[in-house]
Nucleic acid binder design. Structure first.
Ligand SMILES: NC(=O)c1ccc[n+]([C@@H]2O[C@H](COP(=O)([O-])OP(=O)(O)OC[C@H]3O[C@@H](n4cnc5c(N)ncnc54)[C@H](O)[C@@H]3O)[C@@H](O)[C@H]2O)c1
Ligand SMILES: NC(=O)c1ccc[n+]([C@@H]2O[C@H](COP(=O)([O-])OP(=O)(O)OC[C@H]3O[C@@H](n4cnc5c(N)ncnc54)[C@H](O)[C@@H]3O)[C@@H](O)[C@H]2O)c1
Lengths: 214, 214
DNA sequence: GTGATCTTGTGAATACAAGCACTAGCGTCG
DNA sequence: CGACGCTAGTGCTTGTATTCACAAGATCAC
């Protein structure tokens, strides 16, 4: 019984960070307890969902009172694996890659960018916001040596699968893909994507359908 | 019966752009027909799902043969509302906003950036990649005048709700939010978000849980 | 203490999505 | 021209997520 195998649903996992941010705001404004209703309002979901989501973490609330903000924040950070840093590597030192490296929000939230990689030798050994650019030939070995946990792909679409393969070879277990293409990774590696064109097209769909029914 | 009210499920809508991209690749390589299986492989989903998704658009396939690539591409573009451009406005002319404006991928896919807005008077009247920056005081009127359909929020989190309100006031029906905060919009306005920190935290969760069970 | 009032935690109901497995229709080959 | 192979379309099953609604526990006032 060493393993608490209470399996947390995917949809819940995706909401935990939103609650986390809300809790951080509450700490800032020195609120010590919060009800599921208040939290729901802040996170933009309904209260029953908040309670069910939080119940997967354990029974950290108090009936009649609510949740202790700091305690819940701590438990949630622990569950999300945010009690320690996750070194991040960015593949592709172009516009997007540089913008991401320059963005302080990463390091600040426990995701320090420890290396960048590019296939363009002109860019190798450059420093971008203090982060050194390595050649992609050395990706696997360097990522492995630096203990990179999360890889960010910011290459053109055509190079994305290759970048993913190299990251996996370097022992990276999680990949965030910004290139507008589907990439595949072996089982046991997490993959998420951020695709602007896709988001805009989804918006376009709903807008089109709304307008045509007016 | 002027309205074909075949309601397309949200999950399907979110996949259509992925199919669309696959179809565009097939056109490039001069493939004229494609089976659900091939398309499924390209889009990274299973074949039954492809068939069901496409069936919401109509019966555009031919049994025993597959789908005509160009015809399906056209029908899907039409359904997604991509047969005409959607003017986009970006609020927040900082690092992210400028990067987005500089990125050609938008205009190229039918989402021309027609205006940017910022509250910083230093930035007003600047041209960023040929796009003029307006003051946020004029947001609603300018957006309305330019017929902006989609608004992109790239301001600090604290200004995001205000930006959304102004966009809505300007008649913008769809909003893509990059600020790491929950914003609310009136019914009838579509809202999607892109949140990097959130994505990283989700990856962190799975990585943490994988490692602890090894 | 007892009753009134909160608010959590959760079983049960409902809604939504995924996937299987079969049927129907097209094309081709013998 | 009939049989066979291929592939779209879809009813049905299964799984997952959301939401409701209420019992159980906590606090407070008196
Ligand atoms: N810039 C944006 O605002 C933006 C927005 C949305 C999506 N994207 C996507 O992000 C990706 C990067 O965009 P960008 O604007 O930074 O492009 P970019 O051309 O500025 O940068 C791409 C970088 O990747 C490098 N590269 C090429 N092949 C490589 C390989 N095999 N291995 C490693 N590095 C390689 C290039 O040398 C270059 O430095 C693209 O897929 C783009 O579609 C960008
Ligand atoms: N830069 C990145 O790589 C990155 C990555 C992820 C998320 N983000 C998020 O995107 C947002 C913008 O990031 P950034 O790096 O561009 O920040 P930034 O500070 O460079 O730019 C913010 C811009 O918004 C403007 N602004 C401030 N208040 C405003 C208001 N009320 N109305 C209109 N404009 C206003 C500022 O003048 C500034 O030009 C932030 O919320 C950030 O968290 C950025």
């Amino acid at each position: 019984m060493s393993q608490r195998s209470r399996q947390i649903p995917e949809a819940t996992v995706a909401r935990l960070p939103v609650y986390l941010r809300s809790l951080a705001e509450l700490v800032d404004e020195k609120t010590s307890t919060v009800s599921s209703e208040r939290l729901a309002e802040m996170a933009g979901v309904n209260a029953a969902k908040v309670r069910k989501d939080l119940s997967y973490l354990g029974s950290y609330g108090t009936r009649g009172v609510g949740y202790d903000v700091e305690y819940l924040l701590f438990q949630m950070s622990r569950e999300l694996g945010l009690t320690h840093d996750w070194p991040v590597a960015i593949v592709g030192a172009g516009n997007l890659g540089s913008a991401l490296a320059n963005y302080g929000g990463f390091t600040q939230r426990g995701f320090p960018v420890v290396a960048m990689f590019d296939s363009d030798r002109q860019k190798v050994d450059n420093l971008i916001h203090g982060v050194r650019v390595f050649h992609t030939d050395d990706l696997a070995s360097t990522a492995s040596k630096l203990g990179v946990g999360i890889g960010v792909i910011a290459t053109p679409a055509s190079a994305a699968q290759d970048a993913a393969d190299k990251l996996v070879a370097g022992g990276v277990g999680s990949i965030l893909n910004f290139a507008p293409t589907v990439i595949s990774v072996p089982e046991g590696v997490s993959l998420r994507k951020v695709d602007l064109a896709l988001e805009l097209q989804i918006l376009s769909f709903y807008q089109e359908h709304r307008e045509s029914s007016e």
